[in-house]
């Protein structure tokens, strides 16, 4: 469908899938991943039913299907909206005391995040770690000039550097989430009254 080379086809598929996920995210749809999967499944069904897609317009076809899914989603959300008064007791939005306590202790939360980020950054290869720290060195104009120098040093265009940094950020973000999850797990074990 995407390419005769299975590897290239895989990359193109992943690219389109990421684009569709981003589309639903930017449109404020929840959950974006589920809607993206629904879009891909529909396209696959159409192709299975013998639909023909002109070469080079796969992504446009995907986008068209995604728009349909999006509009259907909007209609479904409108139907499912209900006032809080008619919700059953167990459906009421609530705040768990422990989570509320966590929200109040922002400083403790930040310290935990910084500790996790420290561990996550340390786990990066040295060159990668230096690069991302250098990327965020300085403020405003100095930071921009610093990034230009960094791109020159690495011998890549500025846009490529930004993408590299984005990929590292994604890794760090995932690492941070896992690290904090481990911390919360440890906290739960140490707090018998905590109920998840």
């Amino acid at each position: 469908m995407f390419d005769s080379d299975i590897n290239v086809a895989g990359e193109k598929y992943e690219c389109v899938r990421c684009g569709i996920v981003k589309y639903f995210e930017c449109r404020g749809c929840l959950p974006a991943l589920d809607l993206a999967d629904e879009t891909i499944n529909r396209v696959a069904r159409k192709l299975g039913e013998g639909a023909e897609i002109q070469h080079g317009s796969f992504s446009s076809y995907f986008y068209g299907v995604a728009r349909n899914v999006f509009h259907e989603h909007l209609r479904r959300v409108d139907r499912n909206l209900a006032p809080v008064e008619i919700l059953l007791p167990h459906q009421h939005p609530s705040v768990r005391p422990f989570e509320m306590h966590e929200g109040r202790s922002d400083q403790v939360d930040l310290e935990a995040k910084l500790a996790c980020l420290d561990a996550c950054t340390e786990s990066l290869p040295e060159g990668t770690r230096k690069m991302i720290l250098s990327y965020y060195e300085g403020k405003e104009r100095a930071r921009i000039e610093n990034r230009k120098r960094l791109a020159e040093t690495l011998g890549v265009p500025m846009n490529s550097l930004r993408i590299r940094v984005h990929r590292i950020r994604e890794k760090l973000e995932g690492c941070l989430i896992n690290c904090l999850a481990r911390s919360v797990t440890g906290l739960k074990q140490n707090h018998p009254h905590y109920h998840s």
Binding site: G19, Y23, A66, N159, R162, I163
Partner: peptide, 15 residues
């Protein structure tokens, strides 16, 4: 439509 079809543009969106 562009960022779904253009990987470079998509990356730029992320950045």
């Amino acid at each position: 439509e562009r960022y779904i079809s253009d990987r470079g543009f998509y990356d730029q969106l992320l950045a």
